[in-house]
Each structure stands twice: as structure tokens, then as C-alpha cells.
Write a protein that binds this DNA or RNA. Structure first.
Length: 243
DNA sequence: TCAAGGATAAAG
DNA sequence: TTTATCCTTGAA
């Protein structure tokens, strides 16, 4: 049973954390709420990706402050919403202090409130299991649009909350991030996180071996480059994978 | 597998 | 001003 009183809005201090990877993991199990024209929808976060403004070529802000990335440099606790492939509005949570451009991409939600509205926004033919299982589809279902870019996440239109009755422990898995092959070595970082075996996780992907901190992708690359004697290149990748 | 689709940022 | 590219999706 959905009871609004058991949800507590995340305070601004939640977003100040200096480690965006930590924030990405902490966001799993939290809830995204929207109030669009008086209609409330909510979903539980089941999949995230961390993007770091420094030393991460996959991050939009890596190249510096531009008109688009300006909002990522703001103090943590605002929304970064941008248009992807000309079609999809992708929702990111900005973290860290002002001037340090970190953000967490919300990649999948489990619908918990306002599912009738979500079905209307997504189209009646979309099955429930696909309502919010992807960064583009969740934005459409929740009514999140590029016009919400730079919005304060402590406000009353788009906010995050925790369920005070929810269990604290979650089984979390990590893989490399989706759709960032252009980032070269940084594409190997295991910075995508999701709740284990959750049905609303977007895509299946190879799981890196976290016992050693070295993704399988690195092992394959190591074996390949060892054959051609490119050990220096390998050690650079290793540093990135274990930092 | 591939087209849709518009903004972005770098190149011309 | 032009061009290549993009943190994706759903239909073929």
C-alpha cells in the first residue's frame, strides 16, 4: 500500500558528497517523485551510472564548462536533463560541491505510484514491465522534460525521497556503463550499478570481476595486448580500473 | 539491424 | 555555417 507519509525528501546535504560513485550506489532503492500539473508519479531507483567531471571522458563535463554542461558545475542537488539522440530526455542528479561537475544518470525505475498516468504518457500498448526500464522511457513515464533542466531537487516539481520503512541492505551489482564506447579507456570503469535480479533493470551486460577490481573487459584486453607486447598500455588501463 | 530525431561542439 | 556524433528506443 502506497503511503506518502512514509517517504522523506532527501536533504540538500545528500547531494554534496565528493564521491559520485558513492552517490550512484546510495541512490539505489531511493525514489524519484514528480508533480506535473498536480499529478504525482513515483518510481524506485533500481539502476544508476556515475559520471565524474574530472578524469572521465564519458562525462559531458569532461571537456569543460559549456552552455549544456553549465548545470553540472552547480552545487549538488539540481537536475541535469538533456536531449539524447534528438528523441529522449535523460535525467541526471548533479552531485558534489559547486565547481566540481559530477552527476548520476538514473537509468531505470520500478513504478510505484501513478502508473495509470505513466501508461497514458508511454502509450497503452507498452507492457507494465517496460514502463520505466530505461533512461529515456522513465523520463517519458514520469513527465521529465528538458525544460526541467537545472531544477532544484529539493523543490516540489521533481524530487528524490527515501522510504523510512525500506530495508537498508541491497544486493548491488556493477558493470561497465552503457553507450559510452567513445570514452576509450574510461568506458572500462565499472560505474554502472543496479539492484541484483531486479526485473526493471534496462539491459543485460557483462559483469566485471569485482574481487580483483578488474573488469573482464580488461582481462580480454590484457591477453590481447600481451601478445603484441604492449605492456605499458595495459598498466595504464589497470590504473584506471582500480583507481 | 537500423532509422528516428534535434541539440551540441568542433571544424570549416 | 556545416558536419559528425550522441549517457536510446522500438519496429523491421
Amino acid at each position: 500500500m502506497f503511503d506518502l507519509s512514509s517517504y522523506e525528501k532527501l536533504p540538500q546535504s545528500f547531494y554534496n558528497h565528493s564521491d559520485v560513485v558513492h552517490v550512484a550506489k546510495e541512490l539505489l532503492g531511493k525514489y524519484v517523485f514528480t508533480n506535473i500539473d498536480g499529478i504525482i508519479t513515483a518510481g524506485k531507483i533500481v539502476e544508476t551510472e556515475a559520471y565524474c567531471g574530472r578524469n572521465d571522458r564519458a562525462c559531458h563535463a569532461h571537456a569543460g564548462r559549456t552552455e549544456r554542461t553549465r548545470v553540472m558545475f552547480e552545487k549538488g542537488g539540481v537536475a541535469y536533463v538533456y536531449l539524447c539522440y534528438g528523441i529522449h530526455h535523460l535525467f541526471n542528479v548533479v552531485s558534489n560541491e559547486e565547481g566540481l561537475a559530477d552527476a548520476v544518470l538514473i537509468r531505470a525505475l520500478e513504478p510505484v505510484w501513478g502508473t495509470e498516468t505513466m501508461h497514458i504518457r508511454r502509450g497503452s500498448k507498452v507492457p507494465f514491465s517496460k514502463l520505466t526500464a530505461g533512461p529515456g522511457t522513465l523520463s517519458k513515464a514520469m513527465g521529465i522534460h528538458k525544460k526541467h533542466n537545472a531544477l532544484d531537487l529539493c523543490g516540489d516539481t521533481l524530487w528524490l525521497a527515501r522510504n523510512i520503512e525500506a530495508p537498508k541492505e541491497l544486493e548491488i551489482e556493477a558493470t561497465t556503463r552503457v553507450g559510452v564506447d567513445y570514452a576509450g579507456e574510461d568506458a572500462l570503469l565499472p560505474w554502472r550499478f543496479y539492484i541484483r535480479d531486479h526485473p526493471f533493470v534496462s539491459v543485460k551486460k557483462e559483469i566485471p570481476d569485482l574481487r580483483t577490481g578488474i573488469p573482464d573487459a580488461f582481462i580480454h584486453l590484457f591477453n590481447f595486448t600481451a601478445e603484441i607486447g604492449a605492456s605499458l598500455y595495459c598498466s595504464k588501463i589497470y590504473k584506471i580500473c582500480t583507481k
